[in-house]
Every structure is written in structure tokens, then in C-alpha cells.
Design a protein around this nucleic acid. Structure first.
Length: 271
DNA sequence: AACTAGATCAACCGCGCATTA
DNA sequence: ATAATGCGCGGTTGATCTAGT
């Protein structure tokens, strides 16, 4: 199957947008209560542009809720924290910074923040001190121990994130709950993360306990080793932002996948 | 004043996922 | 079930700006 081009290239304008083109696009979207179908928009609006170009111009520049101007130190700090959790998931970060676009955040990171981390002696990819790079012998050898150590380093950022967004995104529509990074992060934080940070099964929450993220009191029930192992296997593929951060990449077996789904369902009931 | 190198950022490209026919 | 299509995402490019020589 050969993918059709997003638009006929011939005769379409490229490069910087003029004020007149901006006006036409804004006017069309305002009059129609939204862009509708991006592919057909240029024709309907009378623009010699590809639909993709129109969408980009609107989402990155013309949208009325866009906040122009320099980033505040607070915003920069937040981006660094989010990057530690999410990696290069600019759109996910943009969702946490009202009025900022993924493109803006990406540009800020590549031009300023990345260099700032490097100058501070940190690896901009994993936010760890650069001197640790490549020194595998300094990392724990077993995968679960390595996992715990990595969780510990991610924990402050994850907690900042959870504190910041409080209960708002807990109201995600149910179809998104098992795939949304924030939801997964919350799962990780509430159950698996607690298990790893407490390290000893005797002080871990059982699957029946209440998650602590939403402020509900938790009933502490000792957790067995097999339970912890199961959670670890469940967590392997919880989301690419988590797996890439934690370096867990091997595929789940069908039974592990089943356990994972059960785990997500149970967490969905709790939070 | 002229040139150059580096920084910035708007825009483009290609890919993958989700939805529709 | 599958091909076609639309959309959004991350990576990259290139035009423009700015500071240094």
C-alpha cells in the first residue's frame, strides 16, 4: 500500500505565512466554529496551502489561547521536571503548560535547557550526572535492583508532577485511562512505585489497599514476593515513557499481559 | 561597515496510530 | 478484515537575527 501525499504539492505555497493568509485562516475557523477537516480546509477557505501546513500554523501560532513571550523560570523548571519523566514527549509536556505548544517547548529544550543540563554536568537524556554515563559497573546488576534504583531517581519528579496536577486529570474519560501517560504514571506511583521505594515486602501495599495519590487513606497489608514480582512484570510495558525511563523493554508473555490488564483494571477502580 | 558563526524558531517531513469506508 | 484516509507527533531544516571580530 502506497500512502497518498497529504496534498497536491504543485501550486501550493510553502514557507513563512503572510498576514493575509493568517487572517484568512483565522477568519475561516472563527466563522465555522473550528477547522473541521484540515485536508479540505485550504480549498474551502481559499488558501493555497496544504492542510497540514494550515493545522500547524493554527496550532503553533494562531490559536487564541497561545501564550506568546519568553518562558518564565517556573515554566523552565517544570519542563525540566517533565522531561525527566516523559523524555522527548513534547506534546505531553505542552498539555501541562497552558498556552505553550509542543514546538515551542521542543525549541526551548533544544536551544536552552539541554545545554543548561550539560553545563551542570547532567546527561540531558536521562538527567543523571554525566560521569555515570557508560559506567555500567556502578549500576545495580539485577534487573529489579536496577529498577528500584531508577525509580528512586525518578520519584521526586514524579511526585512533583502528581502534586502539580492534583485530581484534575483523574477525570480522564475511561477509554483513555489505560493508555494516558499520566494515568500510567499514577498507577506506577501508587502501587508499583510504592512497592519499589519501600523495598521490603513487609511494608508494601497489597493490591487491595487504597492508592495514596488521591489523598485517600491507605490500608497497609503486607505484600508477598510473588505479588511484587507480578507487579514488576506488569509494569514492564505500562507505557513507553515509563519503560524507556526504566529500561524495561522485553515483550510480555500472554499471561503477563493478562496480569497486566487485571492490574490496570484494579487500579482503575481505585483512582 | 562587512563578514562570519552561532542561536533562534517557524515551518516542513515522514512516520505511526486511529478512524472510516 | 483490510485498505484508505486524517491527524498528531517528534525530528529536522533553513531563513532570519544577533553578537563578535
Amino acid at each position: 500500500m502506497v500512502r497518498a501525499p497529504c496534498c497536491e504539492k504543485a501550486g501550493l505555497k510553502r514557507g513563512p505565512w503572510t498576514q493575509e493568509e493568517d487572517d484568512i485562516l483565522v477568519d475561516y475557523i472563527n466563522k465555522n466554529g473550528g477547522p473541521g477537516n484540515w485536508r479540505s480546509l485550504p480549498k474551502l477557505a481559499g488558501l493555497l496551502r496544504c492542510g497540514k501546513s494550515c493545522r500547524l500554523r493554527w496550532t503553533n501560532y494562531l490559536r487564541p489561547d497561545i501564550k506568546r513571550g519568553p518562558f518564565t523560570p517556573e515554566e523552565e523548571q517544570l519542563i525540566i521536571q517533565l522531561h525527566a519523566i516523559l523524555g522527548n514527549r513534547w506534546a505531553a509536556m505542552a498539555g501541562r503548560l497552558p498556552g505553550r505548544t509542543d514546538n515551542e517547548i521542543k525549541n526551548l529544550w533544544n536551544t536552552h535547557l539541554r545545554k543548561r543540563l550539560i553545563s551542570m554536568g547532567l546527561d540531558p537524556q536521562n538527567h543523571e550526572p554525566s560521569c555515570l554515563k557508560g559506567s555500567a559497573k556502578r549500576l545495580p546488576t539485577s534487573s529489579s535492583a536496577r529498577h528500584m534504583a531508577q525509580w528512586e531517581s525518578a520519584r521526586p519528579e514524579a511526585e512533583a508532577q502528581l502534586l502539580m496536577d492534583s485530581s484534575a486529570s483523574l477525570l480522564l474519560p475511561s477509554p483513555n485511562r489505560t493508555t494516558h501517560p499520566d494515568y500510567i504514571l499514577r498507577v506506577w506511583h501508587s502501587e508499583v512505585g510504592e512497592s519499589f521505594s519501600n523495598r521490603k515486602p513487609a511494608v508494601c501495599f497489597s493490591p487491595a489497599s487504597q492508592a495514596s495519590v488521591s489523598g485517600t487513606t491507605s490500608k497497609m497489608v503486607p505484600k508477598t514476593e510473588p505479588e511484587l514480582d507480578k507487579e514488576l512484570s506488569c509494569a514492564r510495558r505500562s507505557d513507553d515513557c515509563i519503560t524507556s525511563y526504566h529500561g524495561l523493554t522485553h515483550p510480555l508473555s500472554p499471561s503477563e499481559m493478562e496480569d497486566y490488564n487485571r492490574f490496570l483494571i484494579s487500579m482503575g477502580r481505585k483512582i
